[in-house]
Amino acid sequence: MSIGHTLLGLLESGPRHGYDLKRAFDEKFGHDKPLHYGQVYSTMSRLLKNGLVEVDGVEAGGGPERKRYAITEAGITDVQTWLATPEKPEPYLSSTLYTKVVLALLTGRDAGDLLDTQRAEHLRMMRMLTERKRKGDLADQLICDHALFHLEADLRWLELTAARLDKLAKAVTSA
């Protein structure tokens, strides 16, 4: 999961203080693992260096948490590319996918497209595995089946999420 892209995405709705960013992140994505201030600080400085954010203003008192950040054009493009690129199908993908879906909803992008793209990627992988299974011996078949079942689980999650997008959009935007 990319914290940088997530924070960038959060900035798309408007400039925020570092402290606000942490709170918004924790609220929406950090359910069991809240972000450290240090992580926010280091991430923001990397983004600043890459020109994806700029400092919008500084409040009295200093410190990174007092700076107000705004997203740049380059930053918006970066988020777009990230969201549009399917993740490499692999186990335990859900937290990244979840973040992407929520961010897409938050920034008014089509979360359905995102899920469809991801499904296509998953299926591509599954086709490969199926093909390998066809040609392989029993050991290959068993190994491929293991991967296939995991991918299938992910795909089921994708289907379920796709079916619940409307509900999720309501929950995310109201919070």
Partner: peptide, 21 residues
């Protein structure tokens, strides 16, 4: 999905609209 994996290509139908992936 595991059945669809036997295909060369998939089409997704949602709300009566199809999407060629």
């Amino acid at each position: 999905a595991r059945v669809a994996a036997y295909s060369d290509r998939e089409i997704v139908v949602r709300d009566g609209k199809s999407r060629d992936m």
